[in-house]
Design a protein around this nucleic acid. Structure first.
Ligand SMILES: [Mn+2]
Ligand SMILES: [Mn+2]
Ligand SMILES: [Zn+2]
Ligand SMILES: [Zn+2]
Lengths: 129, 129
DNA sequence: CCTTCTTTGCAAATGACTTGCATTTTCAGC
DNA sequence: GCTGAAAATGCAAGTCATTTGCAAAGAAGG
């Protein structure tokens, strides 16, 4: 765990919503190169410290968003899903992920394996409706 | 409905899985410009003839995939969700979308409105496991 | 025909993300 | 501590899906 990785992970952990590479870069105070931020996020995801999803929004286009995953080995956090507001572009966490059971059924039905799934809502939050 | 739009929509309707702009372009036999294909897909989505989602895959990177939506006014097709195989990159349709009820609950709980949602599975199909 | 509005082709631009390469860190073993 | 190989980083250039400006081609209506 290098300094840059520790820093990025801490930023994700303290964030209350998914963060783009650019956001992490900025919060890191430009203390390292953007390319390093990208490589760092890849590392964190690959090693189970974070997960990501791509989301398209009219205003910001297509970007990858990252969230911390509580400690690869110890912690138990199931992964999370989010609602994204098209007005203020904030994220709101969606409660318990009920997709796993659906995935299980699908796996059996088709004799295949689902390694992960992506789910998110798009709409307008109470402030922006 | 121009000729190019009709052609693109027909391609989406005949496809048994989501198509990228490049795929539509190619199937159209390069009969029109790629830029036109993009504009056409935007048109189809905006007017309820198609829907899309962005998906990231190691091999093809981040791309937008389109599917036909049975006829904006008449047809009744609820939208669909897909499983994407990381081995052969084929898509398999996931049965009935059970996310709407989840979205409804979320709307009430947070007093907001969910206009759409994105859900897909990633994994390996029976041929590729 | 003629005018006006929309669509298209072509080429250049955009922007998120990736990569090659030279330089710096990290860190295990001495 | 010192040393060398392996891993990480900065910087700059590249990639690639997607978008956009603009002028030419079509469509619609009178
Ligand atoms: Mn947004
Ligand atoms: Mn794929
Ligand atoms: Zn909002
Ligand atoms: Zn497969």
């Amino acid at each position: 765990m290098t300094k840059a990785r520790e820093a990025a992970l801490e930023i994700l952990r303290n964030a209350d919503e998914p963060q783009t590479a650019a956001a992490v870069f900025q919060q890191a105070g430009n203390s390292c190169d953007l390319a390093t931020v990208y490589r760092t996020l890849h590392y964190l995801e690959k090693h189970g410290y974070a997960e990501s999803f791509v989301l398209y929004c009219n205003e910001h286009g297509t970007e990858r968003y990252y969230t911390a995953l509580s400690s690869g080995n110890s912690g138990s956090s199931a992964h999370r899903h989010w609602f994204h507001c098209e007005g203020c572009h904030r994220f709101i966490e969606i409660g318990n992920c009920t997709v796993n059971s659906l995935a299980k059924e699908f796996e059996i039905e088709h004799n295949l394996s689902v390694s992960r799934h992506i789910l998110y809502f798009i709409g307008r939050c109470s402030d922006c409706r």
